[in-house]
Design a protein around this nucleic acid. Structure first.
Length: 272
DNA sequence: AAGACGAAAGTGGTTGA
DNA sequence: TCAACAACTTTCGTCTT
């Protein structure tokens, strides 16, 4: 979609609603894609000036306010298109904040459109659905982020994102595989500034753990965190349970429980 | 003082009658 | 529809380094 706003040389987000102006003014470059604006050229300024720059009498201001309001509606057609442009900008913000690749962002926006077309956004909030589609996309693409990570980046509650994600994936009948703990290991390790040795150690232990079952029913994130904890001790690059809890988004208690089980079954001794 | 430990109670989703 | 259930979290007192 081409943005051809000839008459207006101001910042391109100017004429949208106040919420967007606040958000866009604070962070990130102006959005370049998908403004569902058909190129309407005459803009009613938000300044109370006429075309000569002189002030407009108070009496007429109310009238102009109404005009602006009407134009806002007319400019972008209908409410679903307006909320789509909002959604796309939220998505871009989230993705750049989380350093996600372009192809993930594009897949996510496709899924969002599908959801919007099926009226799944209504009553759930654009931000929440954006976060959920991003969560879904990352998993589909085999680069899962945790709900905690998306929660941190978006400022939404993990619970809500999870709820929305379940709803969306059910309604769109998306096949989403359960991530293996391995898909978290290298990312967590690099966030903890651990060496490649620890990554490899973690992979080895994970292989054992998976072979001998008994991670069934356990959350993959907790297992990954526990295995990393074990590996840091074995490789003499120890991190505290708290540090690992912070990057993985599970609690220290969960790490303890998992790593106790694993060390017992695999007969690993962490003492010296 | 910080890390690790584990008990106990709470939360929210899943499952099966 | 609802109660039982499993996984995980929160909280907190205690032990270890």
């Amino acid at each position: 979609m081409v943005h051809e706003d000839i008459a207006d040389h101001g910042p391109e987000w100017r004429a949208f609603d106040k919420q967007q102006r606040d958000k866009r003014a604070r962070v990130g470059p102006p959005t370049k894609y998908t403004l569902p604006d058909k190129g309407l050229s005459t803009i009613i300024s938000t300044k109370n000036r006429d075309s000569y720059g002189s002030s407009i009498p108070t009496k007429q201001r109310a009238q102009f306010y109404r005009l602006r309001k009407m134009q806002k509606w007319g400019r972008i057609g209908n409410s679903s298109e307006r909320s789509l442009s909002h959604a796309i900008s939220e998505l871009n913000k989230l993705c750049s904040q989380m350093n996600l690749l372009r192809n993930i962002r594009e897949r996510a926006s496709m899924i969002y459109r599908k959801a919007a077309k099926k009226n799944l956004v209504r009553g759930r909030g654009v931000e929440s659905v954006v976060a959920a589609t991003l969560y879904i996309t990352c998993r589909i693409m085999g680069l899962p982020r945790t709900l905690s990570e998306i929660s941190d980046a978006s400022g939404l509650k993990r619970k809500d994102i999870g709820r929305t994600y379940r709803f969306i994936s059910r309604e769109l009948k998306l096949r989403i595989y359960v991530p293996t703990p391995l898909s978290y290991v290298s990312r967590f390790c690099s966030e903890l500034k651990l060496s490649q040795k620890v990554v490899e150690k973690s992979s080895d232990i994970l292989k054992e753990v998976i072979e001998r079952k008994l991670i069934s029913g356990r959350g993959p994130v907790g297992v990954a965190a526990a295995v990393i904890y074990i590996s840091t001790v074995l490789c003499d690059e120890k991190r505290t349970q708290k540090q690992i809890a912070n990057v993985s988004g599970v609690t220290e208690v969960t790490i303890r429980n998992r790593y106790k089980e694993i060390t017992e079954i695999l007969d690993i001794n962490l003492e010296i």
